[in-house]
Design a protein around this nucleic acid. Structure first.
Lengths: 206, 206
DNA sequence: TCAAAAGTGTTGAAGATACACCCATGG
DNA sequence: CCATGGGTGTATCTTCAACACTTTTGA
């Protein structure tokens, strides 16, 4: 009897060039050596599953203190050729200002746009699609969009985040009205001066 | 090193006396011997986690072919005093016309209204609350309510299901209009004759 | 004839959608 | 001076919420 094992896998999203991207890591070991896979690893004896997800994300990508939420548990008997491995999938969001640590674990990590994914190991393609769907749904009834932005942001940047997640264009005036009358942002005293015309920087309020 | 184990636990809902009820089973073994717990058990080597949930539900309650959906995975290290046990929680819905099998496994199974739960073992109280919340949310954007009714039902019965899940009263005219214009029910040719005035029996259409 | 549950429309408020132009700045 | 992206209002439609009486039947 082979031992049953539990892993966590994390779908880490960010926005790059107005598109939703996912972090993948090239596998150095068999099986699926050389192909890309989600960051993740085994759950240790004395940590919760949530802690394992945070730890693996930190070890493999250097990313800490991010939004991280459990997604679904994938438990088909043959999803991993090494034996019986059940994985608890998570998804996480980082602003693109976060920088990936270049360490041994993260040696070959890279961001991929969702419509340009390479072939991925195991059932990770499924997991990624499931995460994307969850993120879209969640955008409707929560403030999850802010997790993909730095502390201060313009309303146009926020709109681009929503458009990237939904994969659709939104009307600028309707979007701004909706966000402002929800009262979930407040103007900071700063203006973004990098564009043609200065733009008001906002901050998320809880 | 103690072996890591995976269980499934199932929150089985039904409607009794206009109230949402949960099925609990009295434990015959330590720990928590004599207290109530959710039906569930260990995931076997060659079955998927979903299959394990279906199997445990069948074995412990006799219930088959019901709506069953994964809820959340609870993985705190000390949630089970026997050792490291991670549980994948599910919730399931049955019409109250389904009858519990009286077998050895289900010897002491009983339905409890959600506001009259006895003390329950492990972290099962949490799991039940989580399931109730999920069910409420799901009612808004899905047809999950029909799973708690027999094939043919009156609109008033459907409304009572919604009210039981939401814990609130609904306006009859608004409710009926909403359901009918969604086009998710069709009138059958039968009428329910048990009440004072005959009521149209409807059927769910997909 | 009375009690109980079935069935049926309208109105007002709020929220969502569609739509186009002027402004400030850097190059 | 022009190209770029920032910023702003209104009209319409759809959706949701509030609200009360008549009908059929069994007891």
């Amino acid at each position: 009897m082979t031992k049953l094992q539990i892993t966590v896998d994390i779908v880490l999203f960010t926005i790059l060039e107005r598109q939703l991207h996912v972090l993948l890591i090239r596998r150095l070991a068999e099986p699926f050596r050389g192909s890309y896979a989600l960051p993740g690893g085994f759950v240790l004896e004395n940590e919760s599953v949530d802690e394992a997800a945070h730890r693996e994300l930190r070890e493999e990508t250097g990313v800490e203190k991010v939004f991280l939420e459990q997604l679904y548990t994938f438990g088909e008997p043959n999803r991993d050729p090494r034996g019986r491995v059940i994985t608890v999938a998570y998804y996480a969001l980082v602003a693109n200002s976060h920088i990936l640590r270049s360490g041994t674990d993260a040696a070959d990590a890279a961001w991929f746009a969702l419509n340009k994914l390479p072939p991925v190991a195991f059932d990770h393609q499924n997991i990624i699609e499931y995460a994307q769907q969850r993120l879209r749904n969640k955008l409707d009834y929560s403030n999850v969009g802010f997790e993909l932005l730095p502390e201060k942001f313009t309303l146009t940047e926020l709109q681009l985040v929503h458009e990237a997640i939904l994969g659709a264009n939104l009307d600028k005036r309707n979007f701004r009205r909706k966000i402002l009358q929800q009262g979930i942002v407040e103007p900071s005293k700063e203006w973004q001066k990098t564009g043609r015309k200065p733009a008001q920087l906002y901050r998320f309020v809880d």
